[in-house]
């Protein structure tokens, strides 16, 4: 991998390590996202994908390693700080408040208030109304901003989480397994969101364990396996069939020897990358 000057990329994570108790989940991960780049992050369940992006969004603190945002090293990092910078996340768990209305969920954690912290409920509802039309394409009157999120379908919930992230005009949008459990048409909608992000000149990280979901929209694909980056490909440089072949190789041997990088010392184990395969 070419080590770019920090300012050449939007965000750069260097040698990130993280353990939960005795389990070392991230073992020195280097990861970066360029300006106006869509990065697909692939890996088996438990590979550490969500942990990596939770560090990037300030939810977890890494045990060691650094994060640079537009060349600036981040210190005293937190969720609030990440948002200030312009990082929006659709978490795998969706991070919704299911007993509450759609409009409340859109503004969860950053309510529109006056200077004393009192809510501008009218404005929030109006904005929410606009957001669900604009980003979610919910033109049916069936879904109102007053709908309780817990009563909505999986696709609609995902739509709320994504609309929420898109609305706040972030430079980097992280989608953690946004297509899991969605129907074909809902998946298509998510993919078109990602294309829209690209068109708007923004960047995104698209996490999935389905290569067929991420390949069409990604500029670059990074493969994470048991806490290590084991492969990294520019989409332009590798056709889908070749990539799938590579994934089989990693799954079988735990290493990549040619075009890929980070091939050293990747342990072989019982749970490799088989599940990445179709």
């Amino acid at each position: 991998m070419k080590m770019a000057e920090p300012s050449e990329v939007l965000v750069k994570m260097v040698n990130i390590r993280k353990s939960f108790g005795h389990a070392e989940v991230l073992r020195g991960v280097n990861f970066e996202v360029g300006y106006n780049e869509i990065v697909g992050l692939l890996g088996d369940n438990g590979a550490g994908k969500s942990t990596l992006i939770k560090i990037l969004t300030g939810v977890h603190q890494p045990d060691s390693g650094e994060i640079y945002w537009k060349g600036q090293k981040l210190v005293n990092y937190s969720v609030a700080k990440a948002r200030e910078l312009g990082i929006e996340t659709v978490f795998q768990e969706r991070a919704l408040s299911e007993q509450h209305s759609l409009w409340r969920n859109i503004f969860m954690g950053r309510e529109i208030t006056n200077r004393w912290g009192f809510l501008d409920i009218k404005k929030q509802r109006e904005e929410a109304e606009r957001i669900i039309r604009e980003y979610m394409g919910f033109t049916s009157s069936a879904l109102s901003v007053d709908a309780v999120v817990g009563t909505m379908s999986g696709g609609e919930k995902q739509g709320v989480a994504i609309a929420r992230a898109l609305h706040f005009q972030a430079d980097l949008i992280i989608l953690d397994e946004p297509t899991t459990g969605l129907s074909l048409s809902e998946t298509q909608k998510v993919l078109s969101f990602v294309e829209e992000i690209k068109k708007q000149g923004k960047s995104a990280i698209f996490i999935t364990h389905n290569i067929y979901h991420v390949y069409p929209v990604a500029d670059r694909i990074v493969i994470l396996d048991r806490g290590r980056v084991v492969g990294e490909f520019m989409k332009a440089a590798i056709p889908l069939e070749k990539l799938v072949e590579k994934l089989y190789l990693v799954a079988r041997t735990g290493r990549l020897n040619d075009e890929g990088s980070f091939s050293e010392g990747t342990p072989k184990g019982p749970h490799g990358l088989e599940s990445l395969m179709p």
Binding site: E93, R94, M108, G109, R110
Partner: peptide, 11 residues
């Protein structure tokens, strides 16, 4: 409602 959600949403 959901402590984990609240946390990751910056509350």
């Amino acid at each position: 409602d959901n402590e984990a959600s609240a946390r990751v949403m910056g509350i």
